[in-house]
């Protein structure tokens, strides 16, 4: 009878545990490796849906104290592998406020890489980004967006959700 090779089995288990630990660590770490503010990966993906406005069908308003951010997405329905435009307009006391260093990032529960886009100023005063997002073959359609920006020297963020349909 062959003698069990305990050392190799233990080594195998150690490698398997290391892989599992690395997988767990990668899933927990922010999706944006660029060292930007805490990413949407862990925060938005794990957030309860009730807390996150859905912009799939209608525009939404994100209230952040005295700051109100209007969020619009289109064309609807939002489709995978298509150019989707995400637009933002921040208001304070009814007046438009430009968001500095504004970046919108997109994640879902399945790791899908980095999808981060800097906002540009549109001619109508809104700030916007176009994003092409992939389709998850597992059938998940729910995506989460996170807007990071600086206002009065302070880093802030706002989250929203949407469903991405198959093209």
């Amino acid at each position: 009878m062959r003698r069990p090779r305990v050392a190799e089995t233990v080594l195998g288990l150690a490698v398997a545990v290391a892989i599992a630990a690395a997988s767990f660590a990668v899933r927990q770490r922010p999706a944006d490796p660029g060292g930007s503010p805490p990413s949407a990966a862990s925060a938005a993906a794990g957030a309860p849906a009730a807390d996150v406005p859905d912009v799939s069908r209608t525009d939404a308003t994100l209230d952040r104290g005295d700051l109100r951010i209007l969020v619009s997405a289109g064309p609807r329905p939002l489709l995978a592998f298509s150019r989707n435009r995400f637009r933002f307009r921040a208001e304070k006391g009814g007046a438009a406020v430009p968001l500095a260093d504004a970046v919108v990032s997109f994640t879902m529960t399945m790791p899908m890489g980095d999808h981060r886009h800097a906002l540009v100023l549109a001619t109508d005063g809104w700030q916007e980004a176009e994003a092409v997002l992939p389709l998850c073959p597992s059938g998940k359609r729910r995506w989460f967006g996170r807007l990071d920006f600086t206002l009065a020297g302070r880093a802030r963020s706002a989250r929203f959700a949407f469903d991405l349909a198959a093209p």
């Binding site: 069990p4 090779r5 190799e8 089995t9 080594l11 195998g12 288990l13 490698v15 398997a16 290391a18 892989i19 690395a22 997988s23």
Partner: peptide, 15 residues
Amino acid sequence: ALLGVSLADDLLARR
């Protein structure tokens, strides 16, 4: 990552 899976499988497969 995938070669690591292979290595773990190979080592574990002794059992």
